[in-house]
Design a protein around this nucleic acid. Structure first.
Lengths: 207, 207, 207, 207
DNA sequence: GATGAATGAGGGTTCATTCAT
DNA sequence: AATGAATGAACCCTCATTCAT
């Protein structure tokens, strides 16, 4: 059924995906109205259900679709050879911010999907969520080079501090992206501010 | 209209508030059913709408109510004389965790309310949310004693790191509260782990 | 929920029951439209579902209701002391015809319900159907006085012939009830014709 | 329009007819899905409606088609020279059972069509139903040899008794065909049991 | 104040039918 | 002839809100 959708002229595909993503991101799964989606996409009610038999199917397709786009681009651009935690985390944080600026609708949708609690889709999402970018942080950092750390400290806890700091910083930026005109947030400025935080932490925890 | 509600026998008031809070926390604004609320509260449908003309009014009243209880108790118990950031933040984090264990329903309701997405109430909440405990951190720390910090560092950024670390830690604890038997999380153990993080930061940033 | 319905002013109860029975009898379970029912009953859509949470509940309630009325009146009026099969069957057939003339809507509904095959309700009906009048024939006649039958014949087969004859006769009458003005079918005339059939059979099978 | 259908390659014709018959028999007129029919027949949606402008047209065509096949074969095989009612009815009943075993899909379709209740087709069917095999009994027996009957009896009524008995017996057999493995119902066994009933009646009503 | 019957707009979903290709 | 995308009316059901009592 979804195969049918993929054969569709891609402009119409996008109209449907964007309309649905926007509606789900704004209102969450249950409150999102298929009526609104078809109105926004400029198609008939019947057509939506011609491609996606159920609201749930549409939602989960959207989730896979957004996640795939993010994940693919993320792993294409990340340099996993870099073992220094501060360098690695630096590029990841900037890459994440960049991806969000590039695909804000996808991000809004995914962000909302992650905290979705409607029983109808919660379970399906939880299985998929494990792969998600944000949640992946911790695991990604378990194999990092630790020999540069001062001997006296608990490595796991330090990594946590670094991660939480970067998340706090990212969220601060994302708040600004949402509230202001995102274009005013220049990559360089963000990059410099991030560096300040990382230098702090580096000087504090490295030998 | 809500004034009428306050004149009500306080036992009935509580039955209504508790029933509503539970329902909203469990299902979110839109999915929460006024039918369930009145059933649980043991009152008639008409009576609920006699006191709260609209579902929205009930929800927003509940929000103010819960927030006030949290805030009042928070400021009664916090020691604002303490100017050392690590000591201050320590007591705040523990106080927060304690309040949540003491009023889990209020917290569940507030937590859900913060991420509420129903357009009908979203805007109203956003205005109020700014005052919320968690978000209030930053402002609270603006008047902290800074002279103990190493001279070379940017105080604001350090405070941010401390706050984000504590938030990360708190969220980790709250996740455990949700998923495990909350009683198994002993105050002392939490307190000790928190101290480890704070010691790290203190030794890193203090002279 | 159905208790609520019973408290309703009985005129409105009847409007709802009649409208629903008519619609189900005409179109069967699945094709019957709740929209039509509420229109015919002169109530709002919501009210119907206030009393009967689901279409299925309404249908099964109607079934129990009709069946009870038929069964109660049937057993009040039948004389089970009569052991002679021809006399017993005579009164039963006439009683059945009389009941149908008295409650044609109930009968139409029940008749359709018995052959209902919508999976949604089929199973529920099958349990209840066992008690049904028509199907009950066979069992009722197993305890009949057999000593008057000619010795050479197979009693079970004879009883079958009698039952099938009476059913054929009843159906012929019911066809007439449906197609003509039922009042023109005078009880006496029917009774006499029935007697002719029974005399045939009696003279053929009794000693 | 249906003429076009007859020009179609007969294999495809059959695929369509069989698919439709199966679907209608299983689910009834309204619930039968044209989607299922085209899927099963391996044709496109558009093509079905190219040949049969409306679902109703397809259904009624199918009805005429099935009925014709039954009727033609019935009258080819029945021996109308036989004037003895018991012999005639014997061959008819056995022929009917044989036809049903030979064309079970046609029979299932017709059987369901007879009790069809969807208003859209009900009226059309009722006109046609009068010609149906089962209902046709009565007329067929009007020209039967009556001189062997005892003089005292009402010939029409006796014929009715015979017909109703045979119908009751047939229905009993058909119930078994539906519920059990039809092949286990051996022609000879059925034939013998039928004979028992007919002997009864013959000895009762013939001189 | 207190009840709960009554409303009707809106929810997701199905499906015969049409029509551009 | 043949396709299947596209339509929209109708389906059952939910629910906040109103109002007569």
């Amino acid at each position: 059924m979804i195969l049918k959708f993929l054969d569709l002229d891609s402009q119409k595909q996008n109209r449907i995906l964007n309309a649905a993503m926007k509606e789900f991101a704004q209102k969450g799964y249950k409150n999102a109205s298929t009526n609104e989606i078809v109105k926004e996409a400029g198609i008939s009610k019947g057509l939506l259900f011609h491609y996606f038999a159920k609201k749930k199917d549409l939602f989960l397709y959207l989730y896979d679709y957004s996640l795939e786009i993010f994940t693919i681009e993320f792993f294409q651009r990340i340099d996993l050879v870099e073992k220094d935690i501060f360098k690695r985390i630096r590029q990841m944080a900037l890459l994440k911010i960049d991806l969000i600026k590039k695909h804000p609708e996808l991000y809004n949708f995914l962000y909302k999907a992650i905290i979705e609690d409607t029983p109808e889709v919660k379970e399906d999402l939880e299985q998929k969520n494990k792969q998600l970018l944000t949640n992946g942080y911790a695991k990604i950092f378990r194999d990092i080079e630790v020999k540069k750390f001062k001997e006296t400290i608990d490595t796991d806890k330090v990594i946590n501090i670094v991660i939480w700091t970067i998340e706090g910083f990212s969220n601060q930026i994302l708040e600004k992206i949402k509230s202001q005109y995102p274009n005013e947030l220049h990559y360089e400025k963000i990059s410099k501010e991030l560096d300040v935080y990382l230098k702090f932490l580096e000087s504090a925890f490295y030998k």
